[in-house]
Amino acid sequence: MKLTAKKYAQALAQVLGESDVTPKTVAKHFMDTLRRRHQTRLLPAILKHVESEWCKEKGITQVNVEYAPKFKDALAVFEASLKDSKKFLVQSTVREDLLGGYRIKIDDTLIDASLKGRLTELSNKLRT
């Protein structure tokens, strides 16, 4: 059976989740396995998936928050409340091109409350 980068990442995340093995040992064994299977070329792709797989394994939801500079204070409260929870892994970015408002991305769902989003919507409406 052909093993994809995602499958390797899943396996790695599951082994990492087991508490009796140290991450260093796991990493070493994983590299040995890849080398033995002549699959080291998949490493960059595997690393891309590992974080999300690890989060899935631990039941953690990744949340990406993007906001316009003026919304920093308002969103700081929201961010802080999520950061205390072990169920969320929050990454936030300031984006000037949003003009106003914020965007929250959870997995492949985008909650858009930005001014840029509204303007794009209006421009689409005008075009049709």
Partner: peptide
């Protein structure tokens, strides 16, 4: 444009991306 500006309210949309 006029009606859009007059009736502007900050709506939040949710979509799969």
């Amino acid at each position: 444009l006029k009606s859009e500006i007059k009736n502007y309210h900050a709506t939040v949309t949710s979509e799969k991306i």
